[in-house]
Amino acid sequence: MSSIAKAKGFKHSKPGLWLSLGTTAFGAISIAKDVRKAQDEHDNLKLINAVVGALALVTGAALLIRELKQLGDDDVLLG
Rank of each mutant, 00 (worst) to 15 (best):
H42G: 13
K33N: 10
G60T: 04
L21G: 01
V58A: 15
V52I: 15
K69I: 10
T24C: 08
G72F: 12
G22H: 03
I4C: 01
S20E: 09
V51A: 13
A32N: 13
A25V: 06
N44W: 10
N44E: 14
L45G: 08
D40N: 12
A5E: 09
I31G: 00
A61W: 07
V51N: 09
K11M: 14
L68D: 02
A54N: 07
V58N: 08
L19V: 08
A25F: 06
L57F: 10
E67N: 08
L17M: 02
I31T: 11
A7H: 04
K69P: 06
H12I: 13
G16M: 01
N44V: 13
S13W: 00
H42N: 15
L71C: 04
R66A: 13
L64P: 02
V76K: 10
V51Q: 12
L68S: 02
L21M: 05
V35M: 03
D73N: 11
V35C: 02
I31M: 00
I48L: 14
S20G: 07
V58I: 14
A28D: 03
A7E: 05
I48G: 10
I4N: 01
N49K: 15
L55V: 10
S30H: 05
L68N: 02
L19K: 04
A7K: 03
D34R: 06
K6T: 12
L19T: 09
A5Y: 09
L71D: 00
L78W: 09
H12Q: 14
E67Y: 09
G16N: 02
A32T: 14
I4V: 13
D75H: 06
F10E: 03
L68H: 05
L63G: 11
L63T: 09
G79F: 10
A56V: 08
H12W: 13
F26C: 11
F10M: 06
A28H: 03
G72C: 10
A38S: 05
L21I: 10
D40F: 07
A54P: 03
L63N: 13
I31P: 00
